[in-house]
Design a protein around this nucleic acid. Sequence first.
DNA 1: CATCTCACG
DNA 2: ACGTACGTGAGATGC
Length: 574
Amino acid sequence: MLAELVGVSLSVEIGLACYIPIGHKEGQNDDLFENSQLVEGQLDLEFVLERLRPILEDDSILKIGQNMKYDAKVLDRYGVMITAFDDTMLLSYALHGGLHNHGMDTLSQRYLEHSPIAIKTLIGSGKSAITFDKVKIDDAVAYAAEDADITLRLWKIFKQKLHLSRVTKVYETLERPLVSVLAQVEKNGIKVDRETLSRMSNAFAQKMASLEAEIYEMAGDTFNVGSPKQLGEIMFDKLGYEGGKKGKNGAYATGADILEDLATNHDFPKRVLDWRQLSKLKSTYTDALQDHINPNTGRVHTSYSIAGAVTGRLSSTEPNLQNIPVRTEDGRRIREAFVAESGNILVSLDYSQIELRILAHIAQIDALQQAFHDGLDIHAMTASEMFNVPLDEMTSEIRRQAKAINFGVIYGISGFGLARNLRIPRSEAQGFIDRYFERFPGIKEYMDKTVKFSKENNYVETLFGRVIHTPEINAKGPMAGFAKRAAINAPIQGTAADIIRRAMIRVPDAIKGMPAKMLLQVHDELLFEVKEEDYEELIAKVRSIMETASLPFLKMDIPLSVDAGRGLNWAEAH
DNA sequence: CATCTCACG
DNA sequence: ACGTACGTGAGATGC
């Protein structure tokens, strides 16, 4: 959203590539003055754009790039709309889902056995790093032309592989069409009110200061509350709390679960927990978010990574807008700073229990499917089945335990994990799991079948055919359990990711002509901004798209259900 | 730069 | 006997 075009590299033939320098500068900048000027001998920006435009905008000419969303966004700011493209990053992701890195350097080493010139050698790193416009043109030529050459070479390899593969449809209907959709979402951004964040920041700082005073008083000493090392020494050495456990590097563990256990007998860890929560909210959200408000738009523009998560989910960076607090009251209030433009409101639509619905579909669990058809409270239903409690006698405690089991099942349940989550003895947790599998034998069959498939094929797949490789599945030793659970979880989480991708791809057409913008995706939620008077129409249209998003490729046995909310800010809309 | 911690689905 | 719930990103600490 802020980058300026410095140059363009192109290749139409392997081993032959060029670089067009446009915006290279020389001279030093200081804090107050822009003293640098354009280097001589470059081509004029307008001249280059107007000669490239007929190619970039011609949908009968295929353009190839690595991470085309980036190029599309930059070119869009110069009024050029790129069409008809392939993306080597997304080809790699479709072909080799489950692997962790689809960056160009990794791909070049993996498939071309060639280490490209590292960007670090041109711009340095850390605080002293320079921007690319200050790189000498000769160095830029070598780096950028190589970049174009490698991309073309990778494309030839991947395109061939894709035609021989089973993931052509995934690439063409789930990955590539998302590029322009997400580019638009990122460009839209969301309005964030700096004053609201600033006020909250000050309030958090005050509360933290008073907690610190209490903490020092109780400890009989001052120390850095934010240092787990120092905190552990205070609690377990100075104050003499029982049960301090040191990790491999000799430091006491002081995570929230440990502090919560200690808090039953002591006030000190309670104060530390409160301080930690405020510290997190302040540093990560109310302070850091302000630095991400774009000076030109007054909005925050996240960047989505299409090929970042192994399961097919998106991830969100700079800033991460997929982990804005919601679970605690103090945290949730941060969403009040995410506001609608005047005359508009925010609309949130989210899938209800999508992963459990997918599990019920994949594993063919009649009781679960019936419950979703009937619109029942699925956790209460599970609890009723497992503990033989009628629905009208259900207690929140029994329901809570059943809910934890339902989540556990999606994660590839283990006695240890469930015990830790519910804070019950492991034997009791194992008893719950045994009873659950007895009542829903289809779930156990699904899990065993999935692990077996993964071991035989070294991959698992989503209902859309997204392939998620599982290279660790046949490893022996302590990692075996991780790989099994990941293999069980991947088709469920991945199918949910596929479904919302399908929905997002259909949104632009559905809201065409409406005064509405898609602003955010948070895994099972889409957030929109729309003129006040049109919100009902928007909800109807988007809900319909989301609920039918699996069609025509996938006919679900159970309905997908979408909840909607609206308000002047994200806290109200959610 | 690794580690710990914690925010989300 | 050991050590684990699945998937992410970011800030602070401390080497």
